[in-house]
Design a protein around this nucleic acid. Structure first.
Lengths: 166, 166
DNA sequence: ACCCTATTCTTGAAACTTCAACAAACATCA
DNA sequence: TGATGTTTGTTGAAGTTTCAAGAATAGGGT
């Protein structure tokens, strides 16, 4: 698979341009949002995403593993992240009552406030970078495309261990 | 801009779904490629991209600033990256003859080899994640969309300081 | 009850990125 | 020439991410 062979299907010209555009756009946007949030909310974009997830969860809390899965990051990364968010007082941990291994990450009031205050600016940034510039057609298309890509990379999210459903 | 006001234009339902799909797809893909390359080429995706840029440059060399601009990363990040790539023997530096401040990053033969050996696997990964899954329509659309987004985030790439051209 | 395997979450070290500060060289202009 | 401001590239420290390893609990099956 890594062997140097002659019959690799290289990217043609348009594919290359598309791929490069993808790389550039995603890097620029991620950088942009990171700076935006680092300035306004004192945290990187990924951490902000964690708070958002928690804010939408039932009692503003979520099991570590589920949070990691939703946010598409590793449990290890989440552990470190929550540790830091805890230092800032935006999240706290609590033992899970039903599973002694488990931990719940809980959004604190302080955390919720930060979210409330920085959300408008964040949405504005996203809107300005994406939705304001695309036609309805393109928006729809972007959604579909991204779902397809994500699906392909996801280790069969649901039903993975239900072979009879495949 | 960060003020908590009532008239923020929040994302509607479909916009949210699109935005989340975007975040998930881009994270998953970046992770995927990072692991792929870390395994096969012993370096992260961004570093690999630098080698690619160099391999396509005139004499396999490029001024640091230009390389940083092309790769959409900061000069600082590039400095650190090149330092490491240099340790591995994949890149070397050379003083720029015309500008005593300048440095050229140069792709070594060893660097070129690594590239040659890992390129097929990398292309395969990209193809599998993106191009194999999208219709021609969608590919075209993706390219257009990403160019639009990138353009919006770019501080006016060319002609920025040529006000009479705007 | 016991054994075996899987899951959950954490940890520390190494690698990577960001940010602010800096020195050196260039450029412009008087 | 000298003053002033800009560009180039680097550095160190602090923050973040990855990776491999490990402790604790859970979930069967026998």
């Amino acid at each position: 698979m890594t062997t140097h062979n002659e019959d690799t299907r290289w990217l043609d010209d348009e594919e290359q341009r598309t791929w490069r555009a993808y790389l550039h756009a995603t890097m620029l946007l991620e950088d942009h949002l990171d700076r935006q949030l680092q300035r306004d909310a004192k945290m990187p974009h990924v951490y902000y995403g964690l708070l958002v997830q928690l804010s939408q969860a039932p009692r503003r809390r979520m099991r570590m593993t589920e949070l990691a899965r939703n946010a598409k990051i590793t449990r290890s990364r989440l552990s470190h992240a929550v540790a830091r968010l805890e230092q800032h007082g935006w999240v706290r941990r609590e033992d899970c009552p039903s599973d002694k291994r488990g931990q719940n990450a809980i959004l604190t009031d302080a955390g919720f406030e930060v979210l409330e205050q920085s959300a408008p600016g964040h949405v504005a940034a996203v809107r300005q970078a994406i939705f304001d510039r695309l036609t309805d057609e393109q928006q729809k298309s972007l959604g579909e495309i991204m779902r397809i890509i994500a699906e392909g990379l996801q280790p069969n999210e649901a039903g993975a261990d239900l072979p009879w459903l495949r």
